[in-house]
Nucleic acid binder design. Structure first.
Lengths: 141, 141
DNA sequence: CGGTATCCTCCCAGATACTG
DNA sequence: CAGTATCTGGGAGGATACCG
């Protein structure tokens, strides 16, 4: 599952192992909004409202919940400024910066290659059409 | 949502935009098993059974389904060798290699920093205890 | 061995209402 | 503005059985 938990030696997880705790962290990072929040915070700290506006389609509830997951895993730091109205900033921790860099690289690869991805999907769809010759050239999605 | 779809110019997605098609690809990559499969295939082509054994905890059904998602998006190539018993290999496409590299980097960051993550979680749990000192100390999640 | 088909069960996540 | 609490459904994903 992982290497020996020797005191003083960092233990290393193994995401391929079913019961490794790293799976839990991976789950948070790859949750529906986790990766997007890590990417969004890559540019620097953001307030709750700004974060909500930046990440299109996220609900307040999921924003809070995902931020709490990321905070518990030590990826995000929550900074509450006293006073009214309440102002809370969220920023990446050093650990979060590292994870966030990977998240951004992944998102960037997808964004840059979107045309190739859409082309592959169109081809897969047309291949399916050949198998089922009942004509309908509409390629949705 | 994205830059103009000029013919001859690659279009670029924007994962922050709610209706951008890149969200769909991101969903597949960050699905429960998507990232793990991309990582597993990073070392070279693998057969169905080997893949199943490598990714701990995955069911046959989700293995097939996730592979099909990744195949449709052009990340994975399926190669069926004729004959009996059936032998099917899966390997990353060039596009898949690029996505897979990001996936591996992300998984690697989590694996390497697992101790820090677990420490952060332990601290968050003890902090929550201080906030609610009366109740039972079971710290679930 | 490598799938497909079917059923079923959680629980993720949206909607809504309320608070400091 | 930044949360919390509760209700609910939809769909991801597991179990099982069967096929080529």
């Amino acid at each position: 599952m992982m290497s020996e938990a020797l005191p003083g030696h960092a233990m290393r997880g193994d995401v391929m192992s079913e019961h490794c705790p790293s799976r839990e962290a991976l789950k948070h990072v790859t949750s529906r909004w986790g990766l997007l929040l890590l990417v969004a915070l890559g540019g620097g700290s953001l307030r709750f409202g700004a974060l909500r506006r930046k990440v299109g389609g996220i609900s307040e509830r999921m924003l809070i919940q995902t931020l709490q997951w990321l905070e518990q895993d030590g990826f995000v730091q929550r900074i509450a400024h006293p006073g009214l109205p309440p102002r809370v900033e969220y920023r990446l921790t050093p650990l979060g910066e590292e994870i966030g860099a990977g998240a951004r690289a992944l998102a960037d690869s997808i964004e840059r290659n979107l045309d190739a991805i859409l082309a592959a999907r169109a081809q897969a769809a047309s291949g399916a059409e050949r198998a089922a010759p009942a004509e309908n050239s509409a390629v949705g999605m």
